[in-house]
Amino acid sequence: MMTIIWSLLKHNGKPITAYAIGTSLYLLMLAALYPSMMKSGLLEAKLQALPPEVLKAFQYDKVTGFDNVLDLLGGNYYGLIFQIIASLFLLSLAARLLARPIDNGELILYLAAPITRHQYTASAMIVMMIASTCLVLFNTFVLLLADWFVAGVSIDGMTLVRFQVNALFLLYAIGGFTLFVATLFDDERRAFSIAGGVLVLSIVLTIGAGLSEKMDWMRYGSIFSLFNTQQLLEGTGDLFLHLSILTGISLFFNASAFLGFRKRSLSI
């Protein structure tokens, strides 16, 4: 099975690397600019000038008193931006690993060899997890570099761990869901649009929940409510409960993908 995993990684290495490096460079840029933005007060002035609805949409829970670069990143990256990046990253990867090979008949080449559906599906799951882990590790490494070498940047280690562990488990859960949807259809575009529609709905529900206290119930319909940046910054909330729920979601959809793909007929 290692041969299949290596082959899938080789074919999908470029997009995985592009997302990991691209997001890491964005984090590095923000970290490098953080000291000068805090010194000039430009960031706080800009944020205070924005309408409250815009700030809530991007999940900025604070616009003053940025004591740590993670306070800035909590809204500028790990809020709405991270939700969109995570969704696009895992949607495209699931499509490349399963939906597209089913759609164009490429999967028949794998199954014609001494490779079973179990082996291929398990390999695709492992590649999804490896890709998610690489994205988080790259981001973590860049932030640690900024902490070590950029003057004026101070990152609390435990807060960084909370952010990255929660982000990793969120990626695992979304990856399991997107892979499961990719096993359901022969048409890549249909699989992409259905999984993408669910994730976009989750993002909309998260935004809607932040716009009004009366709409707070909407967050319970979104997986992104399990990645609360304000609670992660403050060290409050039920992190272990959120990680447990994300683990359950990941296991459920991965198991569903494994069992469902074994039984379905392929039009190839």
Results as ranks from 00 to 15, higher is better:
184 L>N: 01
61 D>P: 03
129 M>W: 12
127 V>R: 07
166 N>D: 14
41 G>D: 08
127 V>M: 07
234 E>D: 07
81 I>A: 14
74 G>M: 08
217 W>C: 03
226 L>S: 12
33 L>K: 00
156 D>E: 01
148 W>G: 02
79 G>C: 04
93 L>P: 15
80 L>Y: 09
180 F>A: 03
53 E>A: 14
109 L>C: 13
155 I>W: 01
188 E>G: 01
200 V>R: 13
213 E>S: 08
216 D>F: 02
164 Q>E: 12
133 T>F: 12
165 V>F: 11
55 L>R: 05
249 I>V: 15
82 F>D: 12
137 L>C: 09
101 P>E: 06
231 Q>Y: 11
235 G>K: 02
16 I>V: 08
260 G>Q: 01
142 V>P: 00
237 G>S: 01
176 G>L: 01
73 L>Y: 07
207 I>V: 14
235 G>P: 04
122 A>G: 10
264 R>K: 03
67 D>Q: 03
184 L>T: 06
169 F>T: 10
173 A>N: 11
24 S>W: 05
204 V>A: 15
57 A>T: 14
214 K>E: 12
176 G>W: 00
122 A>E: 07
89 F>A: 09
150 V>C: 02
9 L>G: 12
266 L>W: 04
36 S>Y: 00
103 D>H: 09
230 Q>E: 14
224 F>C: 13
76 N>T: 10
138 F>W: 11
